[in-house]
């Protein structure tokens, strides 16, 4: 069961497929990874996941 809600993981060290790390944000939408970037702006109905929860 995949999700219809949006999730934004803020400022993590993201392991990229080439083995390098990117310090940045990862957005998830409809069960898929929808964006990976140094910074992604939160949109409506997005749950933010930060270091503190």
């Amino acid at each position: 069961m995949s999700s219809n809600t949006r999730l934004l993981i803020k400022q993590a060290q993201i392991l990229l497929p080439d083995g390098n790390f990117l310090q940045g944000d990862t957005s998830l939408e409809n069960g898929k990874i929808s964006g990976i970037a140094p910074e992604i702006s939160p949109r409506k109905l997005t749950r933010l996941l930060t270091q503190r929860g």
């Binding site: 999730l7 993981i9 990229l16 497929p17 990874i33 964006g35």
Partner: peptide
């Protein structure tokens, strides 16, 4: 098995 746009959002922090 990878973190890439379009991949399934199966992740661990």
């Amino acid at each position: 098995g990878a973190i890439a746009v379009g991949y399934d959002a199966d992740l661990v922090l």
